[in-house]
Design a protein around this nucleic acid. Structure first.
Lengths: 338, 338
DNA sequence: GTTGGCACTCGCTCACGGGGAGTGCCAGCA
DNA sequence: TGCTGGCACTCCCCGTGAGCGAGTGCCAAC
């Protein structure tokens, strides 16, 4: 459909526009790229590309800029993923290696991504639903007031207060703690409800109420925490998003504040590889003039969460994708080690 | 020095400028405020106020705008703290009452503050150093791998992995857990080091190494976590900071990303009441065109952390101060209850 | 299918020129 | 002494219009 050269022209337009942030004309194109044809020919190609909807003119008699569809084609067929340089790789590893706990890992990751891509970075905390239980702890803070602490294999810790309906002896507590752990440690969160279903029955009549309450809280924690958490960094980079940015910056900042929206956005990135959502492909209106590059990361083979960046549609896709992928890999390694 | 009327003129200028965001002239002033004098008189007063450095003209033959010094005088002598309306108070209480844990309390507080003031809200997590220990838990994840969980009276939970130099029996672990708790529960973090100093000596020779390691980690946690955490919200409101905002927005966003800077900023607010830092009074350059209103909050009589907002110097000081104070009080209550 | 030529479009910049809000100053008045 | 009305002056703001230049579309020729 589109000849090789026309694709080449599109690629050149995208590259130049990303670099200069200004509409690119036929003459400038032939000067900066070795297309081997004259500006007139390029103009013809441009006319075709415009008819097909890959590029557009902001105003008559101006140069062309890529449309969302144009970027899409660029990402799908014209651009590879640019691997990072080895100094960059080393820097990533060094930076992430210093992390002391999960919060720190996520915090460092988000800063790293923001710095590498010069865009807004978003990192989701390792998801509970896909994690497994490392340990459950029950503490008696008062006779009828317990604290439930849940530790995941990704190092995440969740705690909940439990107001028991009746006092609960230390031996019963130890008993429950032991049985609970023996049943669910090493299991996936999704399987927990079934595994603890009949647990109250195995307790003395008088303790069943408390056991049930504890289990209810445990299950509640699992469900509630499916609402994942995430961390954002590099917000200052939105000032780089475009010259008309007073108009676009506001909705973007608002979207970034709504973590629910971002989580949905990341969640939609189902592709096992990297997902790139360009401009209007993003469901959320505020992000209609931004692109989102996201990828899953995990401690093992399976992704436990997502991370990515939000940037202007006119971003350096190969470079951004390279950085996102590299960071995801290293974070996965770090999590697997800890 | 400055007559009553001149102060009144300054107050009127501040109020009008905050409202309109435009330089205010003598004629407009007399029309909108009952000063009881003619524009000419106001002009004379304005000339004096300008000589004293309280107001300035952006350009010759334009109206006046308050200087940082002008706002300072306004805040110190001319403005009260505007109490919130009772519906507002009720809304705050309802909103905060729904919080389930500390993260949630802080999260809700930050959103609330941002919404009430339409500015950027900053809430520091209750500080560990001024908190007391509610409970310490030790879990054996593996024979020589322990997890230390520290729970504060403000509901904060910190966890650390401890790689023990030798395996540690369950009875020894229970023993250490019990002794540790009996010594430090209810005590202030600052006192903990002294309280556990001789603890290893009371253990069998073979366990001392492990005990020491655990204690070292515990103390480390206390020290490390003196680096406080904080949460920020309402960043989208910076778009309201001014019409020339492309220039000022960048450094502000950058400053907001540097939590260390913000913590220092809040830390400087030593005043037992509310602290207002106006424009250049802020040490950090990026915040030279913003004002910071901060106040301590706490579960008891004593402040355990700070919260506040960052906004344009041309903010509604009485309203902002009212909102900040009210929110701080309610958060204190919530923390005291939990 | 490609190329050079050419007329045309249109955004951008800058200079020009009211209009208007606001000022400073001054003389007069209580 | 302090307040007031009057008045000339200063500039910002905004709309207008001309010139420039990058870029386009079309066409005839190769």
């Amino acid at each position: 459909m589109l000849s090789e050269r026309r694709l080449e022209v599109l690629r050149a337009i995208v590259q130049d526009y990303v670099g200069t942030e200004e509409p690119v004309g036929s003459k400038a194109l032939t000067e900066r790229h070795k297309l081997g044809v004259s500006p007139a020919t390029v103009r013809n190609d441009m006319a075709v590309l415009e008819d097909e909807g890959f590029i557009a003119q902001p105003h008559t008699s101006a140069g062309r800029i890529p449309t969302d569809k144009g970027y899409r084609l660029f990402v799908d067929r014209l651009a590879g993923v640019k691997p990072l340089s080895s100094p960059e790789r080393r820097a990533i590893q060094n930076f992430l290696d210093g992390a002391v706990d999960l919060d720190d890992v996520v915090g460092r990751t988000v800063r790293l991504l923001a710095q590498l891509t010069r865009q807004v970075a978003v990192v989701q905390y390792p998801s509970l639903t896909r994690s497994t239980v490392r340990h459950v702890e029950l503490l008696a803070l008062a006779p009828a007031r317990l604290m439930l602490v849940l530790i995941t294999d990704t190092g995440r810790v969740e705690q909940r207060m439990v107001d028991a309906p009746a006092p609960f002896g230390e031996t019963s507590l130890a008993d429950l703690r032991a049985r609970l752990n023996s049943r669910i440690v090493g299991r996936r969160f999704a399987d927990v409800p079934q595994l603890v279903q009949d647990l109250p029955d195995s307790f003395e009549q008088e303790d069943r109420g408390v056991v049930s309450t504890v289990l209810a809280t445990l299950l509640e924690t699992l469900v509630e925490e499916t609402e994942e958490r995430l961390m954002i960094g590099g917000t200052a980079n939105i000032t780089r998003f475009g010259h008309d940015f007073p108009l676009t910056i506001r909705p973007v900042l608002e979207a970034l504040e709504e973590h629910v929206v971002l989580l949905k956005l990341l969640g939609e990135a189902k592709d096992p590889g990297m997902t790139v959502r360009i401009g209007h492909e993003n469901a959320h209106e505020g992000l209609n003039s931004t692109s989102v590059v996201a990828v899953g990361y995990g401690s093992g083979d399976e992704a436990v969460a997502k991370l990515g960046v939000v940037g202007p549609t006119r971003m350096d896709y190969p470079g951004t994708m390279g950085a996102v992928r590299a960071v995801a890999r290293y974070v996965g390694q770090i999590l697997a080690e800890s």
